[in-house]
């Protein structure tokens, strides 16, 4: 079972709790093949990266995979400078 999740416009300290809870809810249903469609996301801070990294670990631990697609300019840049583009699957 896989699922696509559309990330919010901004993933910051204000929106991260809801974002994190959404991902935990998906994992709680046993879904560990997850596509994060980041087309709508223009901004991400470290708190959002931590949430994505935690979900990536959870998916891998359970034999699944987290895939990021449609990441925009700012998100891509942040992924690159933090090395996340090397450890996450970005298509």
């Amino acid at each position: 079972m896989s699922e696509i999740y559309r990330t919010p416009e901004k993933i910051d300290i204000g929106t991260n709790t809801a974002f994190s809870e959404d991902l935990k809810e998906i994992a709680s249903r046993g879904i560990f093949d997850l596509v994060l469609d980041m087309e709508d996301t223009v901004y991400i801070s470290s708190v959002g990266l931590r949430t994505i990294l935690a979900m990536d670990k959870e998916c891998k631990k359970n034999g699944g995979k987290l895939v990021i697609k449609n990441a925009g300019e700012m998100v891509n840049k942040v992924m690159e400078i933090t090395g996340f583009s090397q450890i996450l699957t970005i298509v």
Partner: peptide
């Protein structure tokens, strides 16, 4: 920033990002 997802610590990124941008 070269560690894999499994090895990577959660945290320590905020100030790193600040210094990059």
């Amino acid at each position: 920033i070269t560690l894999s997802s499994e090895e990577r610590q959660i945290g320590g990124l905020g100030i790193f990002l600040l210094r990059q941008v």
